[in-house]
Every structure is written in C-alpha cells, then in structure tokens.
Simulated assay, not measured.
Amino acid sequence: MNSSYKYTVAGCSAILLWSLIVGLIRNVSEQLGPIGGAAMIYSVGSLFLIFTVGLPKLKLFSPRYLLIGGGLFVCYEMCLSLALGMANSRNQAVEMSIINYLWPSLTVLFAVLASKEPVSKVIYPAILLSFFGVAWTLSGDQGLSISQLMNNAASNPVSYSLAFTGAFLWAIYCNITKKLANGKNAITWFFIATALSLWCKYAISDEGSIVMTSEAAIDLLLAGIVMGSGYALWNIGIIGGNMVLLATFSYFTPIFSTFFSAWILDIELTIQFWQGVIMVTIASLICWWLTREKS
C-alpha cells in the first residue's frame, strides 16, 4: 500500500473512532458516575497515549502553548464529558453531542472575523444553518418550537450550558493552537492534565464512590483506548495523508457519531433529529469549502 494511503487510512480510522466516543462516554458515566467515569476514561486514555505517542519533555513546548492551548483543551474536554455524563437521558446525551458539533462552523466564524481577507457572504447563512440545525434537533418532533427549546434547556441547564461552552472553547482552540504549537504536539500532557482536573473535581464533589464491575471495566478500557487511539491515529494521518479527503470526511462526523451513539446506547432518534444532524453537517461542509486553502 502506498505510504500516503496508509496515512490517509489512519486519519479516517481516527474519525470513525471519535464517532464512537459519545456513546462510550455516556455508557461509562452511567456505571461509574459522570465525574468519576470521565476521570477514569481520561486516565486510561493518558496511559494509552504514553505508551503509543510517548511523553515528550515539557521544555520542548512554549509556555504559552502549554498554558493557553492546554487550558482550552482541558476545559473543552471537561465540558464535553460532563455534558454527556450529566444529561438526563441517553437521548439528551446525543443532543449534547450535536450542540458540540457547532464547533466547525464557529471555528470558521472566528477565523473569518480575525482575518482581513475577503470571504464569500454565503458563509454567514451557512453558520446560521448550523445553529438552526441544532435548534431543529432539540425541538422534538413538532417542528421548530421556541417553547420546547426553552423547556429542554430548563430541564438540564448545566448540561446544555456545558455543551454550548465546549463548542465555543474548541473553536477558539482550533484557531489559536496552530500558531502557539509551532509544529509541536503536547496531546499526551493535555490528556494527563484533563484527567487530573477531573479527579480534582471528583474529590470536591458529592458524587458517590466508584463501584467497578467487570462490565464497567471492559467499557472503561474500551472508551479510554478508543479515545487515545483516535488522537494517536489522527497525528499519523495529518503527517502524510490526503488532507483534503480527511477534512471532507471529518465534517461528516456528526452523522457518524449520531449513528454509532444510537447503536451503542440502544436508542431511537426521530426523523426530525436526523434532519437537524444533516443540517449541521451540510453547514459545516459549506463553511469549510468556502474557506479552504486552494492549491
């Protein structure tokens, strides 16, 4: 197999693995608790990355990258994992994941606002489409309903707030990290910092003790390895893979993630929910296409 194909396959595999994360995090959270379960997942993921990617010396990275980039990464991962774990139901957890997938459109919006280069005006309706798609998924099966949106948010304001905050944090992370990283990758350290932060939050929370069963241990190991493998394979993919193909494929993640989440969590999603997911995906693709680097 051509080496470029190998890199591309690695990148595509990472995207598919990431699509499993929502269902796996929710599965572990139901057994070990939203905070303790997330802390365990990132601990396992950290160990996996240490053995696969390695633990580079901290002096190789700029302090700004570690503090700003690392801080954004940790806050985002905590927002996402806790939003999924603290959702009132499995269906609501999948709703949290769709809110999270506002980040591609938000990334483009922040990049456009920060850049002085001209951009197609179509970009703004595309960004609005992504928000409309999220609203469509959260409105149940009665069409767009502001009252239903308000009721959903009122039923679990913490999870919804965490999910929206996470989408904005990751969009900011994507815009500034490339400049701060200077070609370096501290993903292992960021994972370790996320695990430690979650353990600190667990220590000061009133969440009950973690009761480990054989089923929970298997699900935990699977979630940690899948999450760590996703980042490890993505690093391989972006080294020599076809980035146009990988970028295009990655923007279908909301569809893949929703499908796998429904399968893992054994839930049924309405046609309106799927329509909203497709809207978010199309909006992300349009945003990427209008702002992609042209060869």
Rank of each mutant, 00 (worst) to 15 (best):
M1S: 09
S3H: 04
S3F: 00
Y5K: 12
T8M: 08
V9F: 11
V9C: 02
G11M: 06
G11P: 10
S13T: 15
L16M: 15
L17D: 06
W18C: 05
G23T: 01
S29L: 05
L32P: 03
P34Q: 00
P34R: 00
I35P: 01
G36W: 06
G37M: 08
G37N: 11
A38T: 10
I41R: 02
V44W: 01
L47K: 09
L47T: 06
F48R: 04
L49G: 06
I50Y: 09
V53G: 00
G54Y: 11
L55Y: 06
L60T: 15
L60A: 15
L60I: 13
F61R: 12
F61G: 11
S62T: 13
P63C: 04
R64E: 06
R64L: 10
L66K: 05
G70Q: 05
G70N: 10
L72P: 11
L72A: 12
F73H: 13
V74L: 05
C79G: 12
C79T: 14
L80H: 13
L80F: 15
L82H: 08
L84M: 12
G85A: 12
N88Q: 10
N91T: 08
A93G: 03
E95Q: 13
S97H: 01
I98D: 00
L102D: 07
W103F: 13
S105V: 04
V108N: 02
L109I: 13
F110V: 10
L113V: 14
S115C: 08
K116R: 09
A126D: 01
L128H: 10
L129F: 08
L129T: 11
S130M: 02
F131C: 12
W136S: 11
T137F: 03
S139C: 07
G143V: 13
G143L: 13
L144P: 07
A153F: 15
S155L: 01
L162M: 13
A163E: 02
F164T: 04
T165W: 04
G166W: 08
F168G: 05
A171I: 08
I172Y: 15
K179H: 07
I187P: 03
T188S: 12
W189G: 14
W189P: 10
I192A: 12
I192D: 06
L198Y: 00
C200R: 01
K201W: 13
E207G: 07
E207W: 07
G208M: 11
E215R: 14
I218V: 14
D219Q: 14
L220F: 06
A223C: 11
V226G: 00
Y231G: 02
L233Y: 10
I236P: 08
G237T: 01
G237L: 00
G237N: 03
I238V: 15
M243R: 14
S250G: 15
Y251K: 09
Y251A: 09
T253V: 12
P254Q: 03
P254V: 04
I255Y: 00
A262R: 07
W263S: 05
E268F: 09
L269N: 02
L269H: 04
F273T: 01
W274E: 03
W274V: 02
G276M: 09
G276N: 04
I282Y: 08
S284F: 08
S284V: 07
C287H: 02
W289E: 10
W289C: 10
L290F: 08
T291W: 07
T291E: 06
R292V: 14
E293I: 15
K294F: 08
